[in-house]
């Protein structure tokens, strides 16, 4: 069966890494995967799965998202129960609001708030926290989710970000799917119905990340494990 994946392109950053990683995983599975890097509504709505990436400043991201009308397209994909994977600033854009760039309204698809690491400036040894939070950090899984299947709890994933979603900012907290420690515990992944969103970059997280992308290619968009 053909697996059509739309990577939403709103002009921000490097979409090729995630495309190449998905292509690689598709080949490993010997499955026909077709990847579209696009902002075209028809192509996105025709796809089986949606990837919503993002890098850079949230103000620029949200301006591009709003200009291209990406919000309503994502709403439609949510209603159509298509599996959606949001990555990094893509995850942050799903929140209600971000403190970055003096405060930016986001898509409010997940009730949450994005804050700045610089406000919590010391690590547990009292050393100044380096920002961006850049590198491989452990993710503790909150609960079983199909996207964590076959991945060892506390696996390391690659992060690079200066803003983050605090644990207390997500409402309800049952939507938190994974947590990571950097100065304090923060949200590494959230899950809501057919959306799974990660602060880390699965496409850059070697075996654990590729396994997550493989799980995404197999995910039916519900939060429970699929029937065997």
């Amino acid at each position: 069966m053909l697996n059509k994946i739309a990577i939403i392109d709103y002009g921000m950053g490097n979409l090729h890494s995630v495309a190449k990683a998905l292509d690689h995983v598709g080949k490993q599975k010997e499955e026909k995967v077709e990847i579209f890097i696009t902002s075209n509504r028809r192509i996105i709505e025709d796809a089986d799965r949606i990837v919503f990436p993002g890098v850079g400043a949230i103000r620029d991201c949200m301006a591009a998202i709003n200009r291209l009308g990406i919000g309503p397209i994502i709403d439609d994909c949510i209603d159509a129960e298509k599996p959606i994977l949001a990555i990094c600033v893509g995850m942050q854009a799903l929140m209600t609001t971000s403190d970055e760039n003096g405060g930016v309204d986001c898509l409010d698809i997940i009730s949450g708030r994005v804050e700045n690491f610089a406000n919590r400036s010391l690590d547990d040894q009292g050393k100044r926290l380096k920002v961006p939070h850049m590198g491989w950090n452990e993710v503790s899984f909150d609960a079983g989710h199909p996207l964590w299947a076959n991945i060892k709890n506390l696996s390391r994933f690659y992060f690079v970000h200066s803003y983050y979603v605090p644990i207390v900012a997500i409402n309800p907290t049952s939507q938190i799917a994974g947590r990571t420690q950097y100065g304090e515990s923060f949200v590494a992944a959230v899950a809501k119905k057919n959306i799974f969103a990660t602060q880390f970059h699965p496409e850059k997280s070697q075996s654990a990340g590729l396994l997550m992308l493989k799980n995404f290619l197999e995910w039916n968009g519900t939060e429970g494990y699929p029937e065997p």
Binding site: G135, W136, N137, E138, L154, R156, F159, Q181, Y182
Partner: peptide
């Protein structure tokens, strides 16, 4: 647990 130091 925390951020790992990187070898590049």
């Amino acid at each position: 647990m925390g951020l790992a130091k990187r070898i590049i």
